[in-house]
Structures are given as structure tokens and as C-alpha cells.
Amino acid sequence: MAEEGGLQIHPMDQFQIHSLFGGDIGMFTPTNQTLWLGITVLAISALMLAASAGRSMIPGRVQSIGELFYGFIHDMVEEVAGHDGAKFFPYVMALFTFILFSNLLGLLPMSFSPTSHIAATATLAIMVFLTVTLVGIWRKGLGFLAMFWVSSAPLVLRPVLAAIEVISYFVRPLSHSIRLGGNIMAGHAMIKVFAGFAGVMGVASVLPIAAIAAIYGLELLVAVVQAYVFTILTCVYLRDAVGEAHH
């Protein structure tokens, strides 16, 4: 790699997974990713349990936040996935809170973002894909396949469209996972690249530092928007499985 120059930037090193207590990484070894997964879980649990512990008629600050999350995702599921999708609400809520908290906690300096790893996002996306496929087949049987047969198109075009629809259906988990992982990874790597510039530019390093501040703001936005997009796409896919008609 490009290690001979004076400029040594390793934007990908921050994503390195290493064992917490040394040794090789096996299936169950606690790693730095495990640590941050745990922190994410704890943060979500703390917020949502604190928000729901009071159960007061007039909500306090924390309870308001919890109810905001609840209302936001509940409305989204009802609106996008339809009324039948409401039983997937806890699942969608778990996805949203996990991605949001993981993205935001990953923006803390020295932290690690599990959602920057394709393995994690692919697992999430495949979970959604399997849920949608299995629920669709279970609820609609072979009728689920009618989704690929665009009956509003001319008969000649239908096989072509069906092929495209099938391909796009199976590409879904790929785009679903890479969108999230790629966005988070690209943001972190970009910050790291600018940080590398800042290290060698002397007084002029105020420029890359200002750029880091700006990118950091953008990344905060991206963290929230990507969590939202992942969640709303999950709802859109769920509509295919439980809704009445293909949009």
C-alpha cells in the first residue's frame, strides 16, 4: 500500500475488529464490536425503560422522548405497511432504534459503529428479506408470486418485467445493507482522511479541521436519515408481504 510517502492515512483501520481480551476471534469471542453492540443495547434499554417506567398521564422529558419514538415508528408502520403490518411494529421499532443508536454512538470519538460493517447490515437486511418472503408466502401462498407478474403491463412485456422484478427483489437485501453500511463507512473514512491531512499540514490544518466539523454535522444527518430510510424501506417491503396490492 502507499506507505512510502510522508502522508500516512489509514482510513480503514478504525473498522478493524479485534478481540477484547486477546487471542483469535472465534464465534463467541467478545470483540470491540461486541462491546459497542452491548453499549447500544444498554442505551436503548435504558432510554426505553426509563421512558416507560413512570407511566404518568402527563409525560416527563424522558417519557416524551420514548413516546415520540413510539408515535413516529407506529405511524410509519401503519401508514406505509398498512394496518396488517401493525403486528410487526416491535420488530421495526427494534430495527430503527438499533440502527439509530448504533449510528449515533458510532459518531462518538474513539467509538466503533457496528453498522459500518457489511456483516452487521447484511444480517439485518437478510432478516428483513426472510421475514418479508416467509410472511408473504405464509399469508398469500402462491399469490405472493403475483407481485412479480405486473398485470397492468402489456402481455408481451410481462415476462421481461417479471424477470426485472425478480432480480430487483433479490437485489433488495444487497442494496438495503450496502446503503446503510456504505454510508456510515464512507462518512467515517472521510473524517479519518481529513484527520490525516490535519496531521501534516501545520498551521493550515485549520482547514481540514473545519472540514471535519462540517462533515461531522453532515454525518449526524446521515446517521438519522439512514436509520429512517432503512426502517421505511422495511415497511415498504412488509407492505408487499401483508398489504393488499403491489404499489
Binding site: 450496502i178 446503503r179 429512517y228 421505511i232
Partner: peptide, 27 residues
């Protein structure tokens, strides 16, 4: 707004693929 974000996500997905190709080539 929901449709807007879904549209943005679909449009972005195709760009993400080329980003993926770049990463795969590099690494």
C-alpha cells in the same frame, strides 16, 4: 415525504453499487 425518502433510497442504491464495485476493486 415518505415516498420522497423511498425514491431517494432507490436512486441512491444504484450509486451505492458503483461505490461497492470501487471498494471491491480496491480491497
Amino acid at each position: 415525504t415518505a415516498n420522497f425518502f423511498v425514491g431517494v433510497a432507490f436512486a441512491e442504491a444504484l450509486g451505492i453499487f458503483s461505490f461497492l464495485i470501487a471498494l471491491l476493486l480496491l480491497f
